[in-house]
Amino acid sequence: MITIGLLHSTIRGDEKLILEAAKKRNVLVELIDIRRSIYSEAQPTQRVDVALERSVSTVKGLYAAHYYESKNIPVVNSTAVATICEDKFLTSLALAKANVPTIPFGMAFTVSELESLIKSIGGYPVVVKPPEGSWGRLLAKINDVDALEAVIEHKDVLGTPSHKAFYVQKYIQKKQGRDIRAFVINGHTICAIYRNSPHWITNTARGGVASNCVVDRALETICKNASHAVGGGILAMDVVETKDGYVINEINHTMEFKNSEIPTKVSISGHIVDYCLQIVQAQ
């Protein structure tokens, strides 16, 4: 019988859904709490057929994934995919390299260079984001140079080193105050939701309301190309509708989905388990 090692920290509703889906498929799940694990050559490795990385912390999850890969245990998502997707700048570079439509972006390290960068991507407003992190935290919509100087000074004085690398995107007015989150497994978009919010940040973690989004051919195509650009696996893509078509905003590699199974009527957890089984069978 195949055993999935579920690398976790706290168990959220998402992980409970995965456990339920595995049980329905008669698949064993070994719960591996990374907070209580020691990753050392002196420690025996829990033998599992595939490791599914579901840590809330990106950094800790990535180290755990590296450890299992070093023991020749496949990890979903792989460290190669996670390394790109955990960093918004690296994700944007991968998308641009593969000619996948994305929001105009750039990175700079000083205010004067940021001003030049902002001009080159079409001027204000722009969004400054930490390269790492999620749930819509620490995003700043910058409408003019005064706001830019204030935000950058705060980051310079108060921020950690990664907050002093300024990732900037052109601000895109979202159609009907919504964006799309598409759930993509192995390049196939299994379902998608609209996230509606009166706020310019539409994350469901920030109060965005989820409703079903029918996946059309254009959405399927851009998500397939974006998946290919970052290395595939289990991904959640944030997609914005523009007058020129869809563009990819961000790609998440350890997605939360518990609020999306009901509106889409798709068992995302079931697809996750099935993909893990495919990875084992392909070994």
Binding site: S57, G133, H253, T254
Partner: peptide, 11 residues
């Protein structure tokens, strides 16, 4: 008590 949000939390 559950830990609060940390810098690198969440997707």
């Amino acid at each position: 008590e559950a830990p609060k949000v940390e810098e690198d939390w969440g997707e």
